[in-house]
Simulated scan of single mutants.
Amino acid sequence: MITKTIISAITLSGCLLANAEASGCPDQYPDGVVPVVRNPPASWNNLIELCAPHGGFVDGYSPVLRVPLYAVEHLTREHIIEHQRNHEGRTDSFRPDDRLTHDQRAELGDYKRSGYDRGHMAPDADSWDEASEYDTFVLSNMVPQAPDNNRELHAHIEGAVRHLAKQDGELYVYTGPVFQGDTQYLHRRVAIPSGIFKLVYDPRTHEASAYLENNVNGPQGQTYTVITPARLTELTGIDFLPGIQTKPLDLPVPRDSGSFGHSRKHGFF
């Protein structure tokens, strides 16, 4: 059973989030509005906002579950072009987040021989230089992710969203875990999600929809549904776009080839 963690101190690089409390990196949210926690278990309260040192994303981090409940990116065409121009291959630099105490954070040993990948929520491939890529490799930006899902479908969804951002100019992208049923843990410390979501919001058209994936290996880890922001709030207890009225966004279908179709055949749930 999860018990509530009392946070006695937060470093200057992190702050407690409480509904509409001011953000330390408001440019990462549409109109500077932080997601609002509506109806989570009591032990999920006191999320810590962890702003990436070089910009690009922010994590709403649970020190109880030791995973982010969401990562938010302001994904722009310019960043994607810079990544494509400058990227010479990924440099792994997985590490615990030294902005957090040992009791608050995941450690490398929690994932060792677990059978789960250290799954980025804000992807390293959305970075635009070495510094911003390095920022993505802290464990506070990761969840235990089934390898088949992480390396195949999820990676293709990330690519589809980058394609859409490059096409449209800018997007706000929210990625995080879904917990349904009995939650299991790595070493009784790091919560393993049952699913992964990626919510995409277009600030020009006020359109938004989310991919919802199963966090499992095998064929079930290669399927997804498209859901509304309201349905995502029901599943997670978090209102990611408080006060913003949205219309459905036609999300691109992830493809290996880099050419993307449309998602209408999947419907909305």
Score class of each variant (00 low, 15 high):
T11E: 10
Y174G: 09
H156I: 05
T236D: 07
T175G: 03
A52S: 15
V67D: 10
Q184P: 00
N86S: 12
Y134S: 08
Q28F: 00
C25G: 02
V34M: 09
L249T: 07
T223Q: 13
L47F: 15
V143R: 03
G56H: 10
E130A: 14
G56P: 10
W44V: 14
Q222E: 14
T5S: 13
G32Q: 04
V161I: 14
H266G: 03
V36Y: 03
S43P: 00
L69M: 13
Q245K: 08
Q184T: 15
D168R: 15
L241W: 02
S114Y: 05
Y174S: 10
Y61L: 07
D98P: 05
L65D: 11
N214F: 04
D124Y: 14
V67N: 09
A131S: 10
L100N: 04
A165L: 05
D117I: 00
P26S: 00
H266W: 11
L69S: 12
Y185M: 15
T205I: 06
Y61T: 02
V216S: 07
I196K: 11
V200Y: 00
T175Y: 06
P53R: 11
G169K: 09
G181L: 05
I244C: 06
G243S: 06
P219N: 08
E49K: 12
Y61G: 10
E73P: 00
T233D: 04
H187A: 12
R255M: 06
P53T: 09
V138M: 09
A146C: 09
E158L: 14
Y174C: 11
C51E: 04
D256A: 13
D110A: 02
E158W: 15
Y116V: 03
N217Q: 02
F57C: 01
A9M: 08
T91F: 06
S8F: 11
V37K: 02
W44C: 06
S13K: 14
G119P: 00
R255P: 00
N45H: 15
W44L: 13
E21N: 12
L100G: 04
T223M: 15
A52G: 08
F269V: 15
R99H: 09
P30M: 00
M1C: 07
T3R: 13
D135S: 05
